[in-house]
Amino acid sequence: MSLSGLLSVLKILFIGGIQQLFNKLTGKKSPPSAAGLTILCPIINGSCGQKSYAMQTRQYLQDMPLHEESPMAKVPNTYLCRFYVLNDVFYEGAPAVEEHLNSKYIVFSSNYYGDLDTYLTGMWEHAQEEVQKIWQHAVTFDRVQNAADFVAYIKRCQVNNSLFFNGSTGEPLEEQLKNLYLKQEFSRFVYEHQGLKPEELQCAFKAFIARTQPKNMSAPTWIAGAHKEIVKDS
């Protein structure tokens, strides 16, 4: 067995094993939550016209509309995500060894809610046109014809996260947005309804509940990606 093979075994024993053991002991099952997807997609070496495929890919990404206009705003359960084109690795200077990548990569890093297949399927279904443009120069992406192909393709490009840190919450995006909307509206409400008589307060509160519908996740709520306060009514 090679050294790296041995280390792989050690890895399973140490990390996966301890974690699985811990989960078993505590009866912990991971419920759907926030997750991180990291992918590196090789771009075809070559060019078309005066521009290499990597340049074209980057320019497309740079020119994508922002905020609520971003194609990613259409993709369900995307909290925050980013794209960049990795030109190469960095040379740290002597005595570090100088080395270079043989491909440029689209790096897509998404923080999303739920299970990966569902998430990627949603991405294909809601932003297929842009997805096809972003990946059009990626190696073998021309073979991707449907959602299932896309999910399989992205998974081939996926790299494992050594650590995913959640400093926020792990609810579905729709809930996060609704809660933000409620926090904002309720904060306004309390500032505007201080010192009322009990009857008036209760009456105003009922009107507030009727208007904001705290349990209706789809509306009224904040629009995903909006850089100004935009409320989606029903």
């Binding site: 905020h67 925050l80 609810e171 996060q176 947005l177 809660n179 904040w222 850089h227």
Partner: peptide, 21 residues
């Protein structure tokens, strides 16, 4: 440098998301 960055709640900090929940 990031080429395209998308944030579902540009008005909210992580503190705001947690407080909202």
């Amino acid at each position: 440098w990031t080429n395209h960055y998308y944030n579902a709640y540009p008005l909210a900090s992580s503190n705001d998301v947690k407080n909202a929940q």
